[in-house]
């Protein structure tokens, strides 16, 4: 089963990279969203897959039965999901604010910090 999901993860990474390479802010946002899911899925697959036996200890037992799913990647992913969600939300607000201030969603036109053309500030001899 790992094989199927590994290929899916590859596809997700490819799509997110394509979206992140765009100049459109909206596509960047979508790219970050896909990237998050790709990463979570990757960690999940790295911990190997076990069908339908969650990492719980049955009542009456002191230790888990063998054959349960790997709990460690799950713990990692759980926090990762929540963190990537809060960062995603922050990114959304940031994008919206950038659009409000700069009146564009084309990142090529967002040049407040590094005005066009690049490097003119640095090119002088006496820095």
């Amino acid at each position: 089963m790992e094989t199927v999901l590994a290929l899916l993860v590859g596809l997700l990474f490819a799509i997110s990279a394509y979206l992140l390479l765009s100049s459109s802010l909206i596509r960047l946002i979508l790219g970050v969203f896909v990237l998050g899911n790709a990463t979570h899925l990757m960690i999940f697959v790295l911990g190997r897959l076990t069908r339908e036996s969650p990492p719980l200890i049955q009542y009456g037992l002191k230790a888990a039965e063998p054959g349960i799913a790997n709990p460690l990647p799950q713990a990692l992913i759980l926090t990762a999901i929540v963190i990537s969600f809060s960062l995603f939300a922050f990114l959304l607000v940031l994008s919206y604010r950038a659009y409000q201030s700069l009146d564009t969603i084309n990142t090529d036109e967002m040049r407040v910090a590094e005005p066009e053309p690049a490097g003119t500030l640095l090119r002088g001899r006496d820095v």
Binding site: E2, V9, L11, F13, A14, Y18, L21, L46
Partner: peptide, 21 residues
Amino acid sequence: GDAVVAALIGGAMAYLLLSIT
């Protein structure tokens, strides 16, 4: 160009994951 880079990334990730698993 972007599509090639994206395919490269996706392929590399899938390959990495396959070889690790």
